[in-house]
Amino acid sequence: MKAYGKWIGGIISCLAAVAVTACGADVAQPDVGSETQAIAGQAAPVYPDRQIEYVVPYSAGGGVDLVARAAADYLSKEWGQPVVVVNKPGGGGTVGAQYALKQAKNDGYTALAVNVSNTSMLSAGMKQPLITNEDQVYAARIGKGTLAFAVKADAPWKDFAEFSQWVKQHPEQLTWTSVGPAGFSAFGVAEWMDAIGADFTKTRMIVTKGASDSLPKVAGGHAILAVHTVGEINPMLQAKKVRILAVSGSERSPFLPDVPTAEEQGVKGLTVFWWTGVSFPKGTPDYVINKWEEAVAKMVNDPAFVKKLHGIQVEPDYADSAQFTQDVAKETGYYVELAEKRNMRK
């Protein structure tokens, strides 16, 4: 009987427990929300907590390098951790990009100073590029530079409209400089040729090592045209060795307010522009990307930083990760179409 009683009592206790729970009694339950928050908290550690390597895939002194150094200086102070610029030039920007995107860890401590030449233009100029948009996460765009068309200071053309008409009639006489068939200058020239209806294939490209090499060639009469950013041309412009006939875009450059746009002179549709920003390898944690987005957004509104950009004729041009990614994808599609149309893809 005692065993029977204990058995009955056990059943009654179990039924009571079920009833109490069902009726909503104050029974301690696991705090799922707290656990989720704890896991989320663990997934977002303090960043950065040590030195960041900011890879510039070009030589020191160029536009990408100077913007990166200004950004590194600002971010080092903002975060209280050193952001160190490391130059890894070669391969038109692909050597440094491969290092930062394919060899380094995707932990947020190796960033790439990315720009138009080794992204959308590289993808458009090569059928099998070494670096693609899919290899990286675009964190934030920092600044942009206006494309300008420069000729020798005493060149015979009074303006860009007259020069364009001459080129349309005599394309075989036009020589222009570029680091290669898929360089920034090449896309600028190809777009211009397309806009005026000139035969791009009859013009002649003179390969150079960049603005520091090409502009002296134009000034010395060894090439007719150099297409670079306003900042790259400015030293030779100030020395009165070259003359800028026009800038691209819908508005005049704030650094050259007296130089009319190509559109003002009847040449419409020139959209090529230079930009630079920061990207990371695929798989980089979201908290890293978010941190850079927030910091760059604040940085481009900092008067001291903007002053540094203006000193090298670069305009602040912020875009967050989503917008930056969308812009590069759209730009890549446009450049691929242009390259295929002008038989520039290799």
Rank of each mutant, 00 (worst) to 15 (best):
R50V: 02
Y74R: 06
G96T: 03
R50D: 08
L66N: 12
A68V: 01
E35K: 13
W79G: 03
V56Y: 01
A60L: 06
V86K: 12
I39P: 00
A71R: 06
R69K: 08
R50P: 03
P82K: 06
D49T: 14
Q42G: 02
A71H: 03
V83L: 12
Q81P: 08
G90D: 11
V27L: 14
Q51Y: 01
P82E: 06
A60M: 03
G61I: 08
G62V: 07
V55Y: 10
D73Q: 13
Y58M: 10
L75P: 07
G41A: 14
K77D: 12
G41D: 08
G90T: 07
T36W: 05
R50C: 01
V95C: 08
V83C: 04
Y74L: 02
Q29N: 10
Q37T: 10
A28C: 09
G61D: 10
D65F: 08
G41Q: 02
I52V: 15
E35G: 09
V27D: 05
S76F: 00
V56C: 07
V64C: 08
G41V: 04
Y54V: 00
Q81S: 10
L75A: 09
R69H: 06
V83Y: 07
V83G: 06
V85P: 03
L66C: 05
S34C: 10
P30K: 09
S34M: 13
A70V: 13
K88I: 15
Y47S: 04
I52Q: 07
Q37D: 11
P48N: 05
S76Y: 00
A25H: 10
Y54P: 00
A38N: 05
G96P: 05
G93A: 10
A60F: 13
V32S: 14
A70Y: 05
S76Q: 05
G91T: 07
E53G: 01
A40M: 11
S76L: 04
I52Y: 02
R69F: 06
G93E: 12
G33W: 09
T36Y: 12
E78F: 09
V95K: 14
G93F: 14
W79C: 05
A72S: 13
A28I: 15
V86S: 07
Q81L: 09
A38E: 06
A38Q: 07
K88Y: 14
A43E: 10
Q37N: 09
A68C: 04
G63D: 10
V55H: 00
A70H: 11
V67Y: 07
P45S: 04
E78R: 14
Q42S: 11
V83K: 09
A70L: 05
G63M: 00
S59W: 04
V27H: 15
A25Q: 05
G61K: 09
A28V: 14
A72M: 03
G92C: 13
V55C: 06
K88Q: 13
A44I: 05
